Simulated scan of single mutants.
Amino acid sequence: MKIGLFFGSFNPVHIGHLIIANVMQDQTDLDEVWFVVSPQNPFKKQKTLLHEFDRHKMVELAIADHFYFRVSDVEFHMPRPSYTVDTLTYLSEKYPEHEFKLIVGGDNLTHFHKWKNYEVILENYGLYVYPRPGSQPVFQHPNVSFVEAPLMDISATFIRKTIRSGKSVKYLLPVDVVDYIMDKKLYQ
């Protein structure tokens, strides 16, 4: 099977993530999309990050009714910070029957050359790139595919701020994720 790996903090997972994953699975040759919950992104501050188990649970709740989506905690058991190339190598060794592709936003291409062993990712895995508001990626490589998708400008930062201020996040998050956040009093 061809698997698209959608890495992220998912702090929290929101409708934008789900729409992008659905477009990637439905409109490309990907058989499944795996949401890889990153415990620590080397480019992001740890300060506002919920515990990885809560973020994993929210993704699990968000994708429960989607047959072609999976959630992965693979990076929970790897050295931190997590580097995409190490996770890709591990998954390729563990699941040699699968072909893995990396799903990234167009905004990631501007600093993709700073990623650990980015050349290995390009040559051995390849990228499926979705558009991001304000990004005009000019990146040419035979293993980079640009996928037409809705422009998503939904930010987890905005969602956390909205929750902290006691406002509604209806339609920004799946209902089960909203219920989980409210029950556990997260981001408040």
Rank of each mutant, 00 (worst) to 15 (best):
V147E: 00
D176E: 06
N143T: 02
L61R: 10
M1T: 11
M1R: 07
K161R: 12
G166F: 14
H17R: 03
L30M: 12
N117V: 05
V178Y: 03
V120K: 04
V178T: 09
K116Q: 07
Y180C: 01
H77N: 13
V23N: 09
V129P: 00
Q25T: 12
L109S: 08
V147F: 05
S165N: 13
F10E: 11
Q136I: 00
F100Y: 11
Q46Y: 07
F146G: 03
V13F: 09
F112T: 02
P96H: 07
K170E: 04
E32F: 04
D153H: 07
T157N: 15
Q27C: 13
Q136G: 00
N124L: 13
K45C: 04
L91I: 12
M58N: 03
H56C: 10
Y130P: 02
P12G: 02
K94R: 03
E148P: 01
I19W: 08
K170M: 14
Q40E: 08
F53N: 11
I103Q: 11
Q25K: 12
K114R: 09
S165W: 07
K185I: 03
S165T: 03
Y128S: 04
M1W: 03
I63E: 11
D73F: 15
L151C: 01
F158W: 06
G16K: 07
V13M: 13
H14Y: 13
T48C: 14
S155M: 10
T162L: 14
R55P: 10
V169D: 03
R164Q: 14
D153I: 01
F6M: 15
G106R: 00
L109M: 07
I103P: 09
M182V: 11
S82N: 08
P174I: 02
L88P: 00
L173Y: 11
F35S: 01
E99W: 10
D183C: 11
H51M: 11
D26M: 15
D31Y: 06
S9Q: 15
K114C: 05
F146L: 05
G134Q: 01
L102E: 02
S82V: 10
V36T: 10
L186M: 04
L173F: 12
V144M: 05
N143K: 06
G106K: 00
F67Q: 13
E99T: 15
V71Y: 02
T89S: 05
E97Y: 03
Y90M: 11
K184C: 05
Q136Y: 00
P150Q: 01
